[in-house]
């Protein structure tokens, strides 16, 4: 399936993200992965994801799938307010820089991650950070959970309506065993 970048001019090159045609794809990836990590950008505080904000969804996802969360920008306090201190908080460029470093030992000292899920960053910034990882983090798979197609990720949803996207997120969570 072909998909288009959400921002029209943000076209990449020959290698484009595989399109997540159904949420089970992400579920299978998350279940299979040994060392996943979830990076949540500041827009997650404002974005509606069905009946809740995206940040609340990411907390439920992280708890269900046991994925450590890195909060970027200034939103660590929003996680703490919700009773879910993230595994770490650091700038988006810093976590990206670490993820592209094969020697990095991870937040827990146990080694580099194999799958990084991203959501809630500004589209164009996320676009370019995915590009770093596509080119330089050769052993890492990246997944965009946002509702707009991110061509530099390994896997991305296509551009979707809010309703369809929320539905996909819901299914994903339930298949992972969450509510």
């Amino acid at each position: 399936m072909q998909a288009e970048s959400w921002q029209t001019a943000e076209v990449p090159g020959p290698t484009k993200a595989l399109v997540i045609t159904k949420p089970e794809v992400v579920v299978a990836m998350v279940k299979r992965t040994k060392r996943p990590i979830l990076i949540v950008g500041h827009e997650a505080v404002d974005i509606d994801a069905g009946d809740e904000k995206l940040i609340d969804y990411t907390i439920r996802l992280a708890k269900t799938a046991h994925i450590p969360v890195v909060a970027t920008a200034h939103i660590v306090g929003e996680f703490i307010k919700r009773g879910f201190p993230p595994a770490a908080w650091m700038p988006a460029v810093d976590i990206t820089n670490r993820l592209q470093d094969p020697e990095w030992k991870g937040l827990d000292g146990k080694g580099q991650y194999d799958v990084a899920l991203f959501t809630g960053l500004p589209y164009y910034m996320q676009w370019i950070l995915f590009s770093t990882l596509k080119h330089f983090a050769l052993n890492l798979k990246t997944i965009s959970l946002d509702r707009f197609y991110q061509p530099h990720a390994t896997w991305s949803f296509p551009n979707m309506s809010l309703k369809d996207w929320s539905e996909n997120l819901k299914i994903m969570l339930s298949k992972l065993g969450g509510k």
Partner: peptide, 22 residues
């Protein structure tokens, strides 16, 4: 830390060259 804005180089007639994944 490089953040490629384009996967290609198109500065000479050898190209375009695909530089994806180094």
């Amino acid at each position: 830390m490089y953040m490629p804005f384009c996967d290609l180089c198109c500065l000479c007639t050898f190209g375009k060259c695909d530089l994806t994944k180094d």
